[in-house]
């Protein structure tokens, strides 16, 4: 299965809106909670209460500062999980076939029973989307909650990834990016959704919506206020007149 499918029926993925992510880490722990209980081995934590805790997480929130040419520096909270790349190098490097991309929906998964824990796929991923479990020693990665999105034991409205369901601001959306009519595709089109590291040639399915412009001059919208009077006395005169009009 290490070869990539030539075509996938769907391209399921996430659209992450950098304009509204507040960096709350809700998606991080919701993901950890779901995936600890579900697909594959639990996401372990090593030295959990110790000096150097290391746990596996499938989704993490970075933050960056951007200094524009003019105006104050901006801060961007930046969630990152597997982008379910179309040309996923993590899949082709895998010597065992444990890494594969699903034909039905393009989800990139690790079949943990086959994984030898060589780490090569994590090396091949430019995004840091794979983490070797510190205790179980198999490769963990975002499953796009494959065990939620089709899960018939869940109510229909809950058949979406755990991180999407929990995100308080609604900065994460899930859908089929191969269908131009899907809500996510439309969002991507409208907001100029972008690829991370396009030069790596991975063709990520997940898209990022850039932050809207910040700190634009406010006065472009309206003229500054004109004074009704310079003196307090004049102000009271204006007040009287205006009240008269109010009746």
């Amino acid at each position: 299965m290490t070869s990539l499918p030539t075509h996938t029926e769907k391209k399921l993925g996430l659209v992450i809106d950098l304009d509204i992510c507040v960096g709350c880490h809700a998606c991080v722990t919701a993901c950890k909670g779901w995936n600890t209980q579900n697909y594959g081995a639990p996401l372990a934590d090593q030295d959990a209460y110790g000096a150097d805790p290391v746990g596996s997480f499938l989704n993490r929130i970075h933050s960056y500062e951007v200094q524009p040419e003019k105006g104050p520096a901006q801060l961007v909270h930046f969630p990152k999980s597997c982008l379910h790349c179309d040309d996923a190098p993590c899949v082709t490097v895998c010597p065992t076939g444990a890494s594969y991309k699903r034909v039905e929906d393009g989800i990139v998964l690790v079949n943990e029973d086959d994984c030898i824990g060589c780490g090569l796929c994590a090396w091949a991923c430019p995004y840091g989307a794979r983490e070797m479990d510190p205790v179980e020693k198999v490769m963990k990665k975002c499953t796009l909650c494959v065990d939620r999105i089709y899960n018939e034991n869940l109510p229909e409205e809950d058949r979406e990834p755990a991180c999407v369901r929990t995100c308080p601001t609604g900065a994460r959306a899930f859908g089929d990016l191969s269908d131009p009519e899907s809500a996510v595709s439309k969002q991507v089109a409208a907001r100029g959704g972008m690829d991370l590291m396009p030069e790596q040639g991975t063709k990520p399915v997940n898209k990022y919506l850039p932050p809207r412009p910040r700190d634009e001059p406010l006065d472009v919208l309206g003229p500054l206020l004109a004074n009704v009077a310079e003196e307090p006395k004049g102000f009271l005169g204006w007040l009287d007149k205006t009240l008269e009009k109010l009746g």
């Binding site: 991080v28 929130i61 951007v66 200094q67 690829d195 850039p210």
Partner: peptide, 21 residues
């Protein structure tokens, strides 16, 4: 980050203070 066209990008805070793989 795709943020390059907005200005100079700098990492502010890592996603976690603990280490990871």
């Amino acid at each position: 980050t795709g943020l390059g066209n907005r200005g100079d990008v700098r990492s502010f805070e890592p996603p976690h203070t603990g280490g990871n793989y």
